[in-house]
Design a protein around this nucleic acid. Sequence first.
DNA 1: AATGAATGAGTCTTCATTCAT
DNA 2: GATGAATGAAGACTCATTCAT
Lengths: 203, 203, 203, 203
Amino acid sequence: MPRTEAANEQIRRETASRILASARAVYARKGGAATVAEIAKEAGVSQGLPYRYFRTKQELFRSLIQGILHDQSESTGWAQSSGGSPGERFERMVTNMVELRRMSPELFQAFHQGLDRRTLPAKLRQDIIQHGQRVRLTLRHLIEEGQATGEIVEGNPDQLLVALLAILEGLSRIGWAHSASEEVAFPEAKIVLRMFLRERRTP
Amino acid sequence: MPRTEAANEQIRRETASRILASARAVYARKGGAATVAEIAKEAGVSQGLPYRYFRTKQELFRSLIQGILHDQSESTGWAQSSGGSPGERFERMVTNMVELRRMSPELFQAFHQGLDRRTLPAKLRQDIIQHGQRVRLTLRHLIEEGQATGEIVEGNPDQLLVALLAILEGLSRIGWAHSASEEVAFPEAKIVLRMFLRERRTP
Amino acid sequence: MPRTEAANEQIRRETASRILASARAVYARKGGAATVAEIAKEAGVSQGLPYRYFRTKQELFRSLIQGILHDQSESTGWAQSSGGSPGERFERMVTNMVELRRMSPELFQAFHQGLDRRTLPAKLRQDIIQHGQRVRLTLRHLIEEGQATGEIVEGNPDQLLVALLAILEGLSRIGWAHSASEEVAFPEAKIVLRMFLRERRTP
Amino acid sequence: MPRTEAANEQIRRETASRILASARAVYARKGGAATVAEIAKEAGVSQGLPYRYFRTKQELFRSLIQGILHDQSESTGWAQSSGGSPGERFERMVTNMVELRRMSPELFQAFHQGLDRRTLPAKLRQDIIQHGQRVRLTLRHLIEEGQATGEIVEGNPDQLLVALLAILEGLSRIGWAHSASEEVAFPEAKIVLRMFLRERRTP
DNA sequence: AATGAATGAGTCTTCATTCAT
DNA sequence: GATGAATGAAGACTCATTCAT
């Protein structure tokens, strides 16, 4: 008796995510030098199997990245939509992003590592740029609003934005680089926020 | 009649730096995916020539990185040795490092890109770790001194250090990623410094 | 449905020996100039396949040589262990070695051809030297014993030994050099033995 | 004032033989793996110079081999032409050839090493075959004559010939293989001759 | 006549991808 | 759905050969 359709579907889903998880780990470890063979081995499947789930290695990588983008979007959206003053929303978003990087450095590492290759498929490149654009716009907007309400420091909002993006990217990498060997003093969000928020003087 | 000894040395020096410069550009662009063929092509020499100057591709890469480390050391040493209070020295060093990244993002990009490969030759890895250690120790020291004099904000000095390193790394990457296509609002050093320096109230 | 474990092992064994056999032929023909591409072609497989069986070309070569050493050891051991007077054992061993060279000149040719390269991996060099040493010691011993019993001619046993080794090596080469084109009058063992054995006078 | 024609000629001759001597040494050492660069270095000249004297590497090699063939011919001719019974002439020739190999193993080694490559230029191959043929014919003839006079042992003269050639080739190689490291007990000619000459009973 | 920097074809090796089972 | 043997294109590296000086 053949497996039911549903059971098959279930197996497919599970195998696919096992492969993706393995890919994430290997990309984080090896960057562009990740090989399909190693991904398969780490996932405990045969060399050929990934090709039943992803047409090519690039497709597998694309899927990996889009999962990350999707997670980020969700988390960003939530922080954004949950009310409060611009400064509060900014604070929540930044805290959120810093925490994400503290918790899963390997996820962001996979992301950045993979992006190194300048040979990204056009479609993926597009997605990433779009996603980054969305995040940047949201943050940029919050910064300006926050400056208007006096919650955020003055200064060129574009430069502030870039400084924020820079530290976020830096934290992704540093978190990972050390996570394996030594304990790293991952900074608390409030240290980062100090760059942006005005001193609140409690009388 | 053969060339004079001096003429040959001159040629060799020039060719070597043409190859190194080309390597820097290609590594910045392609990261670990840089090929010797492309480096050679960009330098306008044959595929085989780099091997008369550097025994292997890794050796070429090592030479590239060590040049960067050397430049950085010099510049850091200068900022450090030129007197003033801890806070002033810290300010000078950070400003210096930020400016370096604004001026030659492609240099630091080559640096980080290449480091992604987890397959660095042991010797080079050692040098890099040592260099990083030296920089970290210096900064860490300044932070503590600055906290003592009240010039630098309070908080776990290790976390402050990591935040600083993170933003420096992030600026390297971001500077590059955008430099080619769009104009990016590279943040001024004082934005970064705000994370660390206490508000100086002018009466 | 995947192949059974046993079927795979079978395939691997067969492919490995097809590659080794091809390597033997090509080394015999080309010596150090043998290329992996040609070995693969002669074995009827793709260029890359040998690397799934032998890590490097050297490893493939090593495997080839060790097979030969192993065969030789077996055959030598047998000749040695099967009793009789020293002269008889010596006669059997030499006959055996001459016959081996008549039967498979291409095997010994591969052996010598490959050894020409002065760039042998240390481990292999070691094995070969050890093996040669063993053979030499055995023969040397037999020569001295044979001289004691009066079966073997007098004279410096070391010189006798070298003369024997020389003719064996020479036969390997000559057998091969001609086997392809002309019929060669491969000498019978007794011609060689005449160098060493005393005339037995039948009354 | 330009050099005189004669002086130039002199220089050319000397340089050419320095290169040839170096080539002989390097071929003996490295076999087919000998490189022009190494030959030039050992000769103390620039990489390009050999090409002013020999059109190609093969041409250089050909010249090397032909020198060896020429030397051998001379020496063989002398041994042959100097009178005596067939057995005596045979004895002289063999002694001569053995001694040559004892004295200059590296010369014969270069010869054999180079021949490994089955990619010999047709012309050279021809020369070598012809030369070998000449030597073989001479020896073959002497063997038959010696058998007729009862000086040389009975048996298939072709097989005797091959045995002789084999030991000569073997001695070339063995002489060299050991000459560098250990003292080898190079056999005296009379040991070799025992294969061929009848016992002479002195009453 | 001599030099050595430069070239580029050829070789080893890796790895994404296919396919018979 | 899964396996792993096999393929072949691409990249690192070597070395015979050329050429400006």
